[in-house]
Design a protein around this nucleic acid. Sequence first.
DNA 1: GGCCAGGTCAAAG
DNA 2: CTTTGACATGGC
Length: 233
Amino acid sequence: MTARQCRVKPRGAGPFLVIDLYTRLFDSFGPQGWWPGDGDFEMMTGAVLTQNTAWTNVEKAIVALKNAGLLEPSAMARADEHVLAELIRPAGYYRQKAIRLKDLAVWLMETWDGDLAKLFEQPALTLRHQLLDRSGIGPETADSIILYAGEKPVFVIDAYTTRIVGRIGLTKLNGYHDLQKFFERNLPVDVELYQEYHALLIELGKRHCAADLAKAKCDACPVGVDCENHILT
DNA sequence: GGCCAGGTCAAAG
DNA sequence: CTTTGACATGGC
């Protein structure tokens, strides 16, 4: 089905709307290609660094870490916290993140011998609990790691997704867990689909959905999202 | 200058 | 269990 065939009614949440929104996003923005094989540890590092931080700032930190040869568990686990902090400074919250990244690397070495492939062999749920036990890894970061590095079908919810869902009236559900289940219930279980969808929602959010609800201006929304009236048009 | 960014955690209410 | 503040840099 093409995007334009879908004359969507307001507030009719369900499978059709959920996949239809994806189709529109993909048709408008194309594949996002997030985290394409730069290595699992780089991906995990990026996931922590990007918390509440613009990706452009994260890139600087990643490059600095790479140049310092610290972008692997063994090296980072041995690195000095303050050195680490200075390298990732552009990514913000740098003192906190330095400690958390190092803790993560130490855990990876001690528990998994630095072998991420082994880590990701575990069932998604087991993996999720282990990641959530790390300091500085919450639901979104854990799920991002599981989806993009572990390549397991877990839908990631972020601030944009929450806002967009609310503005379109996709569902009345709220909160991380309920929204995650909502998407997972209404989509085919497919890693690539989940990866693209999450990235596409953020792309839409960046272009059309400022943090302040009152500022939402979606006049020329290429996807047909009408925030004011809470519908897809 | 003010607002915001691909959150998380601990401390209150 | 929900809300609030701290954490911090860089771009528009």
